[in-house]
Simulated scan of single mutants.
Amino acid sequence: MSASLPVPPLPEALIRPAVEAALIEDWGRAGDVTTDATIPMGTQARAAINAREPGVAAGVQAAELAFRLVDPNLKIAVRLGDGERMIKGDAILTVTGEARSILMGERVALNFMGRMCGIASLTRRIADSIAHTKAKIADTRKTTPGLRIFEKRAVRLGGGANHRFGLDDAVLIKDNHLVAAGGIRPALERARAYAGHMLKIELEVDSLDQLDEALKIGIADNILLDNMSPEILREAVRRADLAARRPLLEASGGITPETAPSIAETGVDLLSAGFLTHSVKTLDVGLDFS
């Protein structure tokens, strides 16, 4: 199997609006009044964003852009790029120039980097714990409004996979869709008639009976096995393996760093976990002047 390609940087045009909005939010109506009141213009400084605990670097691109938007004359050197592992005390990036500019961009840079490092580090922890299986850990749409592109990239930097980015890039038929559509067969048949050849169809089931019905119909590309125990997941995998058309199987619900290995060992193809983005702990990174 060929090695995975590195996760490329995001186009600046995609991330610039979010970083600009964060800076505007932080500056309010009058800018940084503390810096204005205490630091004379022209004061030069050198600072570094340092890891205060081990993890995976992420959000570096956003932090670098934040400083550049504050002051394009700042000299920024990336010491650890997005996706690199780091230990406590590592310098992730350094910035040199006008002290006032560094202070005005500090919090926004740290906010992006701390959250994305937290997501990437948690994802890496789980990816490593299930590396002995064929399963991959994936995110969901349970992301921070306005930050989805950053958070999903952080998942990839941590060795995870991305589920759909929005409502428009895949069909995912969930329990409420089934109620409104009148059942599994009409929902799947309408979805197949609607979707073009490039649009995947995934169906969520919460019982083996629903799985059997879906396998018999044979339309779904992927089947999401919702809130099933490892024992039931193993049986679901066995039944899918016997089907004429085996769909990709995705386990979801109740997945934590502690339960992920036993779930992955059932033979499912994918574990999707909202907690990667909605309940992650920000990694401790800080900016220090020298």
Rank of each mutant, 00 (worst) to 15 (best):
S2Y: 09
A3V: 12
A3F: 13
P6S: 03
P9S: 13
L10E: 00
L10S: 01
L10F: 00
E12S: 10
A18K: 10
V19Y: 07
E20T: 12
E25S: 12
G28F: 02
R29P: 00
G31Q: 02
T34P: 04
A37T: 14
T38I: 15
M41G: 12
G42F: 11
A48S: 14
N50F: 00
N50T: 10
V56E: 03
A57G: 03
A57S: 13
G59E: 01
V60I: 15
A62Q: 13
A63G: 13
A66R: 10
F67E: 07
R68A: 06
L69S: 10
L69V: 08
N73T: 15
K75C: 04
R79Y: 00
R79P: 00
E84N: 12
E84W: 07
K88L: 04
D90V: 06
T94Q: 00
A99Y: 00
A99T: 09
R100K: 15
M104Q: 12
G105A: 14
R107N: 06
R107T: 07
R115W: 01
M116H: 03
G118D: 05
I119G: 07
I119S: 09
A120R: 06
L122N: 07
R124S: 12
I126T: 12
I126H: 10
S129Q: 07
H132N: 12
R141F: 06
P145W: 12
L147T: 06
E151T: 07
E151L: 04
R153Y: 01
G158E: 03
G160D: 04
F165A: 14
G166T: 09
L167Q: 10
D169Q: 11
I173R: 09
D175V: 10
N176Y: 02
N176G: 00
L178G: 01
L178T: 01
V179S: 13
V179R: 15
A180W: 02
A181M: 14
G182K: 05
G182F: 06
G182Q: 05
R185G: 05
E189T: 15
R190T: 13
A191F: 05
R192T: 03
A193D: 13
Y194Q: 08
A195E: 07
G196M: 03
L199D: 08
I201S: 06
I201R: 01
E202N: 04
S207E: 08
D209S: 14
Q210A: 14
L211S: 03
D212Y: 01
E213Q: 15
A214M: 04
K216F: 04
G218P: 04
D221P: 06
L224I: 15
D226H: 13
L233R: 08
R234N: 06
R238D: 13
R239V: 06
A243Q: 11
L248K: 05
S252A: 13
G254I: 12
P257C: 04
E265K: 10
T266H: 03
V268H: 07
L270I: 15
A273C: 12
F275L: 09
H278R: 13
V280A: 11
L287H: 03
L287W: 05
